[in-house]
Nucleic acid binder design. Structure first.
Lengths: 197, 197, 197, 197
DNA sequence: GATGAATGAGGCTTCATTCAT
DNA sequence: GATGAATGAAGCCTCATTCAT
């Protein structure tokens, strides 16, 4: 167990760690690299964290907690399927804006981490995630607002991936705000990129 | 120096290596793990390959060579923008079908590998790739077949990601053939998932 | 899991490790020190053993296995209490002769190791040990061959410790053979060091 | 340099330290563990002591000083050999009663500590110790009160070990007083555990 | 007297790689 | 073609110790 160091310092260190994990991959990142980046010695990190893995854990769980705060609010709002998708996509881009590094890490590492008991919550989250999106899409098909001629699981993956891969190129403070990017993505996903005839 | 081992054995070993790299990540994969999988000792792999890195290199370059064979044929065919996109997407899903592991590795590792001189061809390929797709999209906007109200670079990333992330869940021999998946993806990308009113 | 390296080499390495553990204490012994002693690099030990702890484990369990081989033979022989004690003491000094280092380690480390699940067999062995010795002593008191005016548990500890601490000064190949030492110890334990009046 | 802390606090801290050293071994004990036990942070101990080693030093030297106070009084009393042995044994059990932890530490660590200059007094003490006990035993053999048919050095080790290992199981405040334990031990050592025929 | 944060040395372990057989 | 044994560099982590506050 680690001492209850000042929360600001912890965040600072975690942000740096997340940035490096996202850039180089968790395994390829050395503890020393993180320490260099924050200007301390590798061993000193262990005053603040139990292990490299616990940093990763805290980065991912913090992100997921915030994500689900947002998602749950959306899902509880009683919107129609199309509006729900729109709200979820917008919320997702906001999370990418705020937790870009965490999202990137999540995408690279989630699959193999989920096997470890410590990261079991990743698998749980993935299930909840699928339920929320897939359910909304199914409701939309039933309501006649989404196309019924497409394989629904394929559609699910399409929409899901479409949004989250954006974390791999998104840079906060770029040309477009998260909301603007969400608007364009939604327009593409919902209406396609082809001109209507 | 690598001895003149039989090409079939090489392929076999590389396939195994690719599978493990894809599942666990390149850095997290030990040479011993690959050796276990093929039923030999770690040291014995060095009869066939110079290094772990050279296995990765061969996996990625083989894949890219084949990919560009297919792409170049498409690009040389003189098709219209929409037909070109359709052909590229279909070709891409065929490559995913044939080189699933390589594609997954590519997506996880390309970014940080591209910095190393040995993997400079990854950056080259990425540029060629962007030129081909972005050019086709621009031609399509000019021709009035693709929407002009969207940020073209955003569209490019959208289409690109939409196709390649599929490698993360695609399993050869599944329900849908690559061509069928391509058809559905194209339908979504081009026309959207919303019902037209 | 470690490769099934040649048993001779293993024994050689374990003997050296035991010697150093006995001399400096397990915790105070560095893996490098052991490696130096056998003329290899620290990391190379891991080709033969999983960990420093697994060396300790193998040293102790090998010793205990042999010890109980001998003890069980004695206990199954159906001797009277006094003869049983004599045989156990003699057997013990033979074990000290053969496994001096292991015995010394056992005495220094057993108490706190027994808490760890991996070394649970130490606690088991201690119980069997107590049962064998204490039982024999009790039988002897009942039979009237051992004094009844002494606290029996105190007697047990007296005899037990008296024998095993010898490992701390015993050097194989010294003046006295194990059997000769056993004879003298037995004479002291049974008849005392005072001249009879 | 150590500040002039209150002597009571020092003792308190040293007692705790001794207890932990005895239970886990000196090397395996972390300064932090001791600090936890006394309810402060690891760094804070350095207000009271120069180093971990100086705690050990103070524990052992305090114990040895007291031990020799008692021993010297006994040795100066001009008793006969048998009475001297009886008095030394009794005094030893009193020391075990008062300094159980220190005695346990002494037994586990003395051998390898004695090499370091700082702990040279351990070797000195051991020599004085041997001289006192061995001398008394030799006097007893010469006087005809101790058996002459035993190897005298073996007898010395036998008596010495027999007493001091008791520290490994002795718990102050147990069933028997130190004096009672001494009486029983003496009875066994002097007269043996066998019934006389 | 004590805390919080850090240092720096060193420990255990992993792993790509080599090479004699 | 493959094995067994080893190297050497590097990685994660621990811990005694220091010091400004």
């Amino acid at each position: 167990m680690t001492a209850p160091a000042s929360p600001e310092r912890r965040s600072e260190l975690l942000n740096t760690a997340a940035e490096v994990f996202a850039a180089q991959g968790y395994n390829a990142t050395t503890v020393r690299r993180i320490a260099d980046e924050v200007g301390m010695l590798a061993g000193s990190l262990y005053y603040h964290f139990d292990s490299k893995e616990s940093m990763l854990d805290e980065i991912l769980s913090t992100f997921l907690t915030e994500l689900w705060d947002g998602y749950d609010t959306v899902l509880a709002a009683g919107l129609g399927p199309r509006e729900t998708i729109e709200a979820l996509v917008t919320e997702s881009f906001r999370e990418i804006d705020r937790h870009r590094a965490a999202v990137a890490i999540y995408q690279k590492e989630a699959r193999h981490l989920a096997d470890q008991p410590r990261f079991g919550y990743l698998a749980d989250s993935q299930q909840k995630f699928e339920k929320a999106w897939l359910g909304t899409l199914e409701r939309g098909v039933a309501d006649g607002v989404f196309r019924a001629d497409l394989d629904i699981r394929l559609t699910y993956r399409f929409v899901r991936d479409t949004v989250w891969v954006a974390a791999s190129w998104y840079r906060p403070g770029g040309l477009h705000s998260p909301e603007e990017i969400a608007r364009q993505y939604l327009s593409m996903v919902l209406d396609g990129i082809a001109v209507r005839v």
